[in-house]
Nucleic acid binder design. Structure first.
Length: 958
RNA sequence: GCGGGAGUGCCGGAGUGGCCAAACGGGACGGGUUUAGGCCCCGUUGACUUAGUGUCUACGCAGGUUCAAAUCCUGUCUCCCGCACCA
């Protein structure tokens, strides 16, 4: 454990004991800040730490600036992940058990005890109960100024009641609708499933794919083929049926269909009635025909083994121009007359099949499938992998760049992207097709049952397009501050395309839908307005208010002030005073003044938050500000648990202590940029902080309350400017500039003055700035700051000390300039001596510029403010009595106009400069142990005297 | 494909029209301190030049606007992120 870790623990303990961050409403201006509540998922790592730490630095500044700051954190447990962990442990999943044994092992050493605790995790609530206190402890190691009394989880009664209240609001306003919706579904569990219920669902995710089932008239009914590409239907040449499998004839709704048995089974889950009539061998169909839409003619049914009964209908319509599988299958048949004979098919008919060009894709001719097969040397259906890749490639290019050809009837000239939708729509409207959902790969649930797609016909949706809602949300957004501002447009776009969103599921932790208990509110929809609980959560606990008491009217009153409090009190059995207190607290803290989050939340959580607030809250409680932070990498790589490259907060605490982390994180990159965690750089920061700490400790011991001589005005001036810079940066949440200012700029400025100030004066400077500096450091490295603050003999906590105000009156740019000039001359003298290779100069002469040049430079500076026109500048100057120096002036002006940086920041007068340099001369004389002569150009005999310019005296070393 | 962002030195990264050979941090090199190492301190680190205050070249590439561009405009290349119902 490092020294910094010890200091951190000491102060974290004291803050806790003294309830430093437990806040109540008072007379001060309030600031209520939030971050998204973290999901319970085992131990915390630095990925979690960024957002909470940034918000902490920012809010600590505001606390010191005199605001009453509320910074709370709660925990999210809704949805399926915690459930999934629980399930995995129940099923004896070794990976999960090991992972969680590791997390638990961070706190408990006894192996038996660990195993016992893991066993309890079969109940999801046990996971929550175990980790919430651990997560609070781990967050606390970061030194957060959080009021932990207000924490809760999304599974707590208060949260559930509040979510119910919100959904009642949605329902009352007509923002909830019911409809059909496809979900992944386990036949054995007879329930919807998520990623964590599916075998290998985390490593090889299963998606829902939307097939179009197209009906081809055949005998008494339809042969039904499945396709993902309805836009290729103008290119159909034949039908593929697998001779090796058995199909079924079935009554589907009111029609007779011929298709695979597997599909028939699945279709029953997708809102269709299916009665199987008989089984039919695949070979039965061969050589016959069926009638195809779009091409509007009979297609020959041919054999192919690539048709998989488990995918789609096991029947595929053939588009050899655009589908590599179809092309190779057709070619194999055309090239093998024997194969045709074997299936009793007329080879001449097969041979006669001609490809129909349908899509014009970038980089391809008439028949992309043929081209790509040739290019990739695909000649056989056995090259399955290559064929799949080729199919992907053709699809991708076709979808993005393709245009329908003249062969495609009224769709000719249409982009593939559009034609796909339009053609499918036409088929559906004509009753010649239906939608069928299929999983993107064969999948099993963890208990071994088959996973399919089922359509639920009573799915609940939030309808963001409900009348008036978007307009209000937009109004809220318009009044919000978005940092960085560039994300506002993204919000606007998201608002545009937000439509109906499924908001409840059949499984998972969370809140049941109050008016339809079969459903659990989905985890993104239940976490949109929970910040409303922070002002009251600890009161609800204190007043022992039960779930039954937190009714809809209860929240209506507490949040919005609606209703008659006496009646409410009687109805729910809560004393009027308590209701008043709840209402007052809410009204004091709300709205949420600032929410700091990751950009990934923009299109869902943050947008929903705005919609939820405008739906449920009075305008004055709408959110005020959202800021964004960037992602976090480790040594250039993404951090993830599966890669095993995360850094647990406990380890961070042990190796560095919170302050090193905070300082590194804030200074490494700007808030909105990607942060790369590089151990080497963190080590550098640790060294720097140690160095800074030592310097401040020493400075504390050598303070004097004495007047600082005017020769150090430059330092004081710069100090004030840096204070201002730090403050301005914090106001903008520019944590990087702030961190750099207090860690480095002030540090090097302090070093500079320490080198040139005499001891007494240096101690006086210490007296003037040290406690200020400590306080300025406090938001960034609060533990170190507290420790030093105490050493400096200050009362109370640095965390609660007033923020140092900068004094504009002390800013003296002339003093700074003079100081810089002195340093420059000093530097030049050193360089000249080096270049001249004179080891022991016996005389140094410094020549101050001619007086008239000061007038010239002053005038030039003024003129250059208005114009860059050489002629007018020259004529203005020549109008004065400087004309006598025209020869020299004509050399100076072009150079200066071309590059105005050649002019000094300030132009002093000759006498002042002479005095300053004379003073320096004395010092130089001591340094080099030689005679130094400072003279004005007018009296100098040195030829170099002519080169002297204001702020740039000529130097001669002999 | 659409939408958004980025391309600056050995590296990370400042800089949004002139005060920029480029903050700050790191690395490398030279020197000081030290028994030695570390820490710390000083200097150098685009090229050329010089007894400093000098000249030239550079901000993905190619053009343009302007007295003046890394910064504005046009084209182009490369990389990253999002394109949803998933937390």
């Amino acid at each position: 454990m490092t020294r910094f870790t010890e200091i951190a623990h000491k102060w974290q303990q004291r803050w806790k004991e003294n309830k430093v961050f437990e806040v109540e409403p008072n007379k001060k201006e309030k600031l209520f800040v939030t971050v998204p509540y973290p999901y319970i998922s085992g131990s915390l790592h630095i990925g979690h730490a960024r957002v909470v730490t940034e918000m902490d630095v920012y809010s600590r500044y505001h606390r010191m600036s005199g605001k009453n700051v509320l910074y709370p954190i709660a925990f999210h447990i809704s949805g399926t992940p915690v459930l999934g962990i629980s399930l995995a442990i129940k099923n004896g999943d070794e990976k999960t058990i090991q992972l969680f044994s590791g997390y638990v092992g961070a706190y408990i050493k006894d192996k038996k005890e660990i195993a016992r605790i893991i066993k309890t995790f079969e109940d999801p609530q046990a996971i929550v109960d175990f980790f919430v206190p651990k997560m609070i402890a781990e967050f606390s190691t970061l030194g957060l100024g959080v009021d932990w009394r207000r924490s809760f989880t999304s599974g707590d009664v208060i949260h559930q009641r509040m979510v119910e209240w919100l959904f009642h609001k949605y329902k009352d306003k007509g923002y909830l609708v019911q409809g059909k919706h496809p979900v992944l579904f386990s036949k054995s569990l007879n329930n919807a499933v998520g990623e964590d219920d599916i075998k290998d669902g985390d490593t090889d995710p299963v998606e829902k794919q939307e097939f179009t089932l197209i009906k081809f008239a055949y005998e008494d009914g339809f042969i039904v083929a499945a396709t993902l590409r309805p836009e290729t239907m103008f290119g159909q040449t034949n039908m593929w049926i697998n001779p090796k499998i058995t199909y079924v004839k079935a009554k589907v709704d009111h029609e007779i269909w011929y298709f695979s048995k597997e599909c028939a089974d699945k279709l029953q889950f997708q809102d269709h009635n299916v009665d199987i009539i008989e089984e039919i061998a695949g070979t039965t169909f061969l050589g016959k025909t069926c009638f195809a839409p779009f091409v509007e003619r009979d297609l020959l049914i041919l054999p192919s083994t690539f048709c998989n009964p488990a995918i789609g209908t096991g029947i595929v319509t053939s588009v050899p121009a655009d589908a590599p599988f179809d092309w190779i299958a057709l070619k194999e048949l055309q090239d093998n007359p024997e194969l045709c004979t074997q299936y009793d098919i007329d080879h001449t008919q097969v041979k006669a099949i001609e490809l129909i060009p349908i899509i014009n894709s970038k980089g391809y001719g008439d028949f992309p499938a043929v081209e790509i097969c040739k290019k990739r040397k695909i000649t056989s259906l056995l090259q399955e992998k290559e064929l799949k890749e080729a199919t992907q490639e053709i699809y991708k290019v076709g979808y993005h760049t393709g245009v329908m050809r003249d062969t495609c009837g009224k769709y000719a000239g249409m982009k593939v992207e559009k034609a796909k939708q339009a053609m499918r729509q036409q088929l559906l409207e004509q009753g010649r097709a239906t939608i069928f959902w299929e999983t993107s790969r064969p999948a099993l649930s963890r208990d071994g049952g088959e996973v399919i797609v089922a359509i639920l016909d009573n799915q609940w949706f939030i309808d963001f397009n409900a009348k008036g809602w978007k307009a209000e949300a937009k109004q809220c957004l318009d009044h919000m501050s978005i940092v960085p501002e560039k994300y506002r447009k993204r919000f606007e776009d998201v608002f545009e395309w937000l439509d109906k969103r499924p908001c409840a599921r059949r499984r998972g932790l969370g809140t049941t839908l109050p008016f339809d208990k079969e459903w659990v509110i989905e985890s993104l929809s239940d976490s949109v307005i929970y910040m409303s609980l922070y002002p009251i959560a600890q009161l609800v606990k204190k007043f022992k208010i039960s779930g039954e008491q937190m009714t809809v009217p209860f929240f209506n009153y507490v949040f919005n002030g609606y209703g008659v409090v006496e009646k409410l009190s009687k109805d729910v059995g809560i004393p009027v005073e308590q209701l008043h207190t709840l209402r007052e607290h809410f009204d004091y803290w709300y709205p949420n003044d600032h929410r700091h989050t990751f950009t990934a939340h923009l299109s869902n959580h943050l947008s929903f938050m705005i919609f939820a607030h405008v739906a449920a809250m009075k305008k004055k409680y709408w959110p005020q500000k959202i800021s964004f932070h960037g992602m976090i990498l480790r040594e250039g790589n993404k951090m993830s648990k599966s890669k095993g490259n995360t850094i647990p907060l406990l380890e961070l605490d042990r190796l560095y202590g919170a302050d090193v982390f905070r300082a590194f994180m804030c200074s490494a990159t700007s808030v909105e940029s990607t942060l790369d965690w590089q151990t080497e750089k963190v080590e550098h920061m640790k060294k720097h902080l140690l160095n800074l700490y030592t310097i401040l400790e020493t400075a504390i011991k050598h303070q004097k309350n004495e007047t600082i001589a005017s020769e150090h005005d430059w330092f004081i001036s710069r100090w004030e400017q840096l204070k201002q810079q730090a403050t301005a940066a914090l106001e903008e949440m520019d944590l990087r500039t702030y961190a750099m200012t207090v860690l480095y700029d002030m540090f090097s400025l302090y070093k500079d003055v320490s080198r040139e100030a005499k001891e007494q004066q240096f101690h006086a400077i210490n007296g003037a700035i040290i406690t200020e500096w400590i306080r300025l450091l406090c938001p960034l490295v609060p533990h170190i700051a507290e420790e030093l603050y105490e050493q400096a003999g200050e009362e109370g906590f640095a965390s609660l000390a007033p923020w140092p105000k900068s004094d504009r009156a002390k800013i003296n740019t002339i003093a700074e300039f003079t100081h810089d000039m002195t340093k420059q001359v000093q530097d030049d003298v050193r360089k000249v001596i080096e270049l001249a290779k004179i080891e022991h100069p016996h005389r140094i002469t410094i020549v101050i510029s001619h007086e008239w040049k000061y007038a010239l430079f002053t005038m030039l500076k003024e003129l250059l403010e208005d114009t860059r026109d050489m002629k007018s500048i020259i004529s203005s100057i020549m109008d004065t009595d400087m004309k006598q120096y025209s020869k020299e002036i004509m050399k100076i002006i072009p150079a200066v106009v071309k590059d105005p940086s050649k002019l000094p920041h300030f132009v002093l007068d000759q006498e002042t400069e002479y005095k300053v340099v004379k003073h320096l001369g004395a010092k130089l004389g001591e340094d080099y142990n030689t005679h130094v002569l400072v003279e004005k150009a007018e009296v100098s005999t040195q030829p170099k005297a002519r080169n002297a310019a204001p702020a740039k005296p000529a130097i001669v070393v002999e």
